[in-house]
Design a protein around this nucleic acid. Structure first.
Lengths: 117, 117
DNA sequence: CTGGATCCCTATCGATACTG
DNA sequence: CAGTATCGATAGGGATCCAG
């Protein structure tokens, strides 16, 4: 937005950088399963199969898809240990840990209010 | 999850009530435009047309859809003033204000980290 | 075990036109 | 002003099968 916009309308357009970042984060973790996956990894599940087992109803395919998104977004680190067979581990990145911490108040919000409808 | 699940696996399944509430909230506000609309109303835009003007790229149709969802979720209150023509106003409910406050750390998170990729 | 590839159905969303 | 109706394109996501 421009200053003249605000002067004209009395409120700012909602497209400032900070807001765009927050909304894009929400649109990422708001996707189906993303929240649960982040939570699961945050709680200590590191293996692919562990995560599938931890998040109720999550399929192999969607986990693969979401992990790629989350990894691409810098929220999760993927490491491959050269065992036989290889051991793949997923962990929260510093960024991912920070995000989870930033989501804590939202969890408290969830505790405060009954789901409506 | 059950206690035996946890004892068997070493980590909990992610389906506790608190988590479900938080993820459903994220899936609601993570929908396209929802975040911006909430922000806009939080910043003082109350009229339908004001909100459209405030959120860049938002169409009439999507605003109508999202407002219905947010109203249904108890986040926004819709009031009709019996003027001619009628004046419809949207405001954050107490719940909506609490949600926005709970989302504040996420905005700060957005300030801390550059968008990746 | 960790995924990739494919099929296919549905939900979502943008554009446009129309109404009380 | 504040929406609704309809259409078409596309993205999301479940099921299943396959592979390193």
């Amino acid at each position: 937005m421009t200053t003249s916009d605000r002067l004209a309308t009395g409120w700012e357009t909602v497209d400032d950088e900070q807001c765009r970042r927050a909304t894009s984060i929400m649109e990422l973790v708001g996707r189906r399963w993303s929240g649960g996956i982040l939570l699961a990894v945050g709680r200590g599940a590191t293996r692919f199969s562990e995560i599938v087992a931890t998040v109720q109803g999550l399929s192999d395919r969607m986990l693969a898809v979401r992990l790629k998104e989350l990894e691409h977004g810098g929220l999760i680190d993927r490491t491959v240990e050269p065992t036989v067979p290889v051991t793949v581990r997923y962990r929260l990145s510093p960024r991912g840990r920070d995000l989870l911490a930033s989501l804590q108040p939202l969890q408290e919000y969830g505790r405060r209010w009954e789901p409506q409808a």
